[in-house]
Design a protein around this nucleic acid. Structure first.
Lengths: 154, 154
DNA sequence: CTCAATGCAAACAGTTTGCAGTCCT
DNA sequence: AGGACTGCAAACTGTTTGCATTGAG
């Protein structure tokens, strides 16, 4: 069994353990998220899957993603404008997004999980909130757009 | 001159330095953000200001906020669903948002700015992006909602 | 003066909703 | 068997756009 297959299986088991029904549509969306790992939008997922397996409505993609997000399994990336991107959150990482073209890259480093815990702990102490999740996002200009923008100025 | 007045004046100077026109509408929105500091939505700002000073259209609120966000002066908080909240970003802090009622609280600690710099630096190293901003958000359940939800279960 | 900013209303796009039919468990 | 899930299309809502008017520099 490949590494991604194992990840998919684990995610499904995790859902089943919560008595959430495993439908073909949910499996398709989950598989897409885990195998592609390309921060897709709802529309991207919908058209990609529908292209080969036309048994999926747009509303179901919305429902399914909302479910995964509620389970803390998938992250909503609101980026800048445009529509929302989704990311399977298998292990702690954060996102760097290009404010010019929207390209998103995952970043992590050895102590990142520890730093997140610190942020969560302080937030809980200061606010009394019961912390359920977090998200770090960094904005910037990707290398491609740096070149493009530099050329435009000439 | 009060502390907030000084902040407002500084923000205006900052805009003027970039040759951005200081219109009454922009001053109103800026003043609202700095004095209230309550993470308002577009609609909140629009109706609050229009209530006393009906010289402001909804489109202008959108324009103005987009301008401030582009200047890095204001942060867009996409929270969960609902519409977007805005926050005057005078000094480094992060946000804890209640996933049940949407209430947002600012949090910071002495080394927070340093931790952000680390996150930015690593992101730049790993991706080559030219970093222009960042945002940390923590999700949780606020104390009020913790009580409410506990009561519902009985 | 000049050109950017505003206001208005219509257009838009992504998202949500209601309900009948389907199918996991 | 039964309730959760899906699909469809209509309805919604927040946001954007175009253009004539206004006003900041």
């Amino acid at each position: 069994m490949s590494d991604t297959d194992k990840t998919i299986q684990e995610a499904i088991d995790q859902l089943r353990a919560k008595h959430i029904r495993i439908t073909p549509q949910r499996t398709l969306v989950l598989t897409y998220l885990i195998t592609k790992r390309n921060h897709p939008t709802v529309e991207t997922i919908y058209s990609a899957i529908n292209h080969e397996e036309p048994s999926l409505s747009l509303a179901t993609v919305y429902n399914t993603l909302k479910l995964f997000v509620d389970q803390g399994m998938v992250l909503e990336l609101s980026g800048n404008d445009e529509s929302i991107h989704y990311d399977y959150y298998g292990s702690p990482h954060y996102h760097v997004i290009c404010t010019n073209c929207g390209k998103i890259i995952d970043v992590t480093y050895p102590d990142f999980a520890k730093d997140l815990q610190k942020i969560d702990r302080i937030a809980a102490e200061q606010t009394g909130y019961k912390i359920t999740g977090n998200h770090v996002e960094v904005q910037g200009i990707c290398t491609d757009c740096q070149t493009k923008l530099a050329n435009q100025k000439n």
